[in-house]
């Protein structure tokens, strides 16, 4: 999140970095205090917990004695496999959201200014209902005696109910459905600021629509794409409510496994180790996709 820090949000890399003055720090202090107390401290506690053992006499209790046991266990094939499949689901979700969300965001961003807010409101309306209720709605649509199978059978397209629920497809559908707005909004932000004259210039210089898209539009909206990708990918990895409701939990996800360590399994240190590994993975991902310094600022 380094590039989101105030003072580093200047659009060109040529301008020297501005650091906030005393008044700036004062204004920032509530945020810094909040981040420190509710992000940094809990994260540190999680990391410390991941190196602790359990009290053999009362397993719910944590013993502050150093051990690497939790990490050794986290690298067992079972947990690596679970992590792998969770990453795959999340990646697939982010890609599908991108493919479906980009045209929508582009359409809204290029729509007449008066209509944009209405269109954006339409994107956000589902958020007025709890995501759990929206997910349950999908259960009624997809189940064997549900709405979709009813239509398919009434129209004679299928003779027996098709299994839609409790499949990997249902999981991805649930994730894409819930996270799509998080892809559309940041891309919309980039598209809205896109200078129409640059696209016209591309056409004037003989670009076909495809190359105008690939060489001008996509690079200029890259920040929105990257932000949207992370806003979808990161929460998808650890999401467990949708995967258990729509996937039936046949293949556990890493979020579900972590949650169980803190509850039924009563092994908080192991859950903390899995959580810490996930956190490291996020940092690695952020670092790998860190926006490169562009040689020529566009303004």
């Amino acid at each position: 999140m380094g590039y989101l820090l105030p003072g580093s949000s200047t659009p060109t890399s040529a301008t020297p970095r501005r650091t906030p003055g005393p008044a700036g720090w004062l204004l920032l202090s509530p945020l810094l205090l909040w981040l420190g107390l509710f992000v940094v401290v809990p994260t540190l506690l999680l990391v410390i917990l991941s190196f602790c053992s359990r009290d053999p006499d009362a397993p719910g209790r944590v013993l502050y004695a150093f051990t690497l046991e939790n990490y050794v266990r986290a690298f067992q094939p079972t947990y690596l496999k679970i992590l792998g499949s969770s990453l795959l689901y999340a990646f697939l979700t982010a890609i599908l959201c991108l493919v479906m969300g980009y045209p929508v965001a582009y359409f809204i961003g290029r729509a007449p200014e008066g209509r944009r807010n209405t269109l954006l409101a339409l994107v956000m309306i589902p958020f007025w209902t709890s995501f759990l209720i929206r997910t349950y709605a999908w259960v009624t649509i997809l189940s064997n005696q549900g709405f979709l199978n009813g239509i398919l059978q009434a129209s004679g397209l299928t003779s027996a109910p098709v299994d839609f629920m409790y499949t990997p497809g249902a999981v991805v559908l649930g994730l894409v459905y819930n996270y799509l707005p998080f892809m559309i909004l940041p891309i919309y932000g980039s598209v809205e600021k896109l200078d129409q004259s640059l696209i016209e210039a591309a056409y004037d210089l003989g670009a076909r629509p495809w190359s105008a898209l690939v060489e001008v539009i996509l690079p200029l909206t890259r920040p929105g794409i990257v932000a949207g990708f992370f806003l979808v990918f990161v929460p998808s990895i650890a999401m467990f409510a949708i995967t258990t409701l729509m996937g039936g939990g046949a293949v556990p996800t890493v979020g579900e496994v972590i949650q169980k360590q803190f509850t039924a399994a009563r092994h908080a240190p192991f859950g903390a180790a899995l959580g810490t590994l996930l956190l490291l993975l996020f940092f690695a991902g952020l670092w790998a996709t860190k926006p490169r310094r562009e040689p020529e600022p566009i303004d």
Partner: peptide
């Protein structure tokens, strides 16, 4: 490392 546009930043805020 600061090419994220203010507009994208605003969109992020909206998301938040």
């Amino acid at each position: 490392m600061n090419i994220i546009r203010p507009s994208a930043f605003a969109a992020l805020l909206a998301c938040a």
